[in-house]
């Protein structure tokens, strides 16, 4: 049984079809990348799984259980956490409070504090800024805080939305080190990215998505070979894309 099983999912905003009948799955302990340009529907997909956007049709199952009718909070309780694209840390709470809010569903106070300490070991920058308002953190620090906050809920399935967006390459390195660490720990990961190079470095499998539809699926090696990634992201022929290093295109 797959950890996450999305079947023929369609999401509609008003007259706009954000997702048109997509089926994807994430196995237990697997890291799956979802690559696509802006407006491909990646974020809608994550928010639908997280339970803050309602699908028009289709099913989402976690460990075989249908999530339909389950509130966002209940989904967190069932081990599904999301780190949104704009990070959305609580800017007027300090770093420590942000971590504690992440553990809202848990009652084991001593364990929660121990987990917070673990986060400070994982992200030493956060330990230094423990009492700072999260709004005053740099983009990279906020990204780390958003990931740490999600981990406080002990997710079994972690969904990350463009964790490298707007970050300097060195900082992106740090973030991806943390993701690799989580993967090693056995967490299933659904990683949404435009930065395919980064995502492929950690992913076991990947989907390419464009205008609400799947374009291709395969291992990073297969997809990179086909040249489909460049075509999907930049809408141009693979030969031309090869002339420009895609890294500068995406991270800028």
């Amino acid at each position: 049984m797959n950890h996450l099983e999305i079947d023929k999912l369609t999401v509609v905003y008003g007259a706009v079809r954000a997702i048109a009948g997509i089926s994807i799955h994430v196995g237990h302990g697997e890291t799956v990348a979802l690559i696509g340009p802006n407006g491909a529907g990646k974020t809608s997909l994550l928010f639908t799984v997280a339970g803050v956007v309602a699908p028009r049709s289709g099913t989402i199952k976690v460990n075989g259980q249908d999530l339909a009718g389950m509130s966002a909070e209940e989904r967190v309780a069932n081990g599904i956490s999301v780190v949104p694209e704009n990070r959305d840390v609580f800017t007027k709470l300090n770093v420590h409070e942000n971590l504690l809010v992440g553990a809202s569903l848990r009652k084991d106070r001593a364990e929660i504090l121990a987990d917070a300490d673990r986060m400070y070991t994982l992200f030493p920058r956060l330990a230094e800024r423990r009492q700072h308002m999260a709004g005053f953190l740099s983009g990279g620090e906020q990204q780390m805080l958003a990931i740490a906050r999600a981990l406080m809920a002990h997710p079994k399935l972690l969904m990350l939305d463009e964790p490298s967006l707007g970050l300097a390459p060195v900082v992106t390195d740090k973030v991806y080190e943390a993701i690799a660490e989580l993967k090693k720990g056995g967490t299933s990961i659904l990683l949404v990215e435009q930065n395919s190079e980064r995502a492929f470095g950690v992913a076991d499998r990947a989907y390419l998505m464009q205008s609400g539809r799947l374009v291709a699926e395969g291992t990073p090696a297969q997809l990179a070979q086909d040249g489909l990634v460049e075509q999907t992201l930049f809408g141009r022929a693979p030969t031309r894309a090869a002339e420009t290093p895609s890294k500068t295109e995406v991270t800028s």
């Binding site: 997280a50 803050v52 509130s71 956490s81 959305d88 609580f90 809010v101 992440g102 809920a153």
Partner: peptide, 15 residues
């Protein structure tokens, strides 16, 4: 304070 600042994100972390 979390709900006050960002109700949707508060729900997404299980508040």
């Amino acid at each position: 304070r979390a709900v006050s600042e960002n109700p949707r994100m508060a729900r997404l972390v299980g508040v």
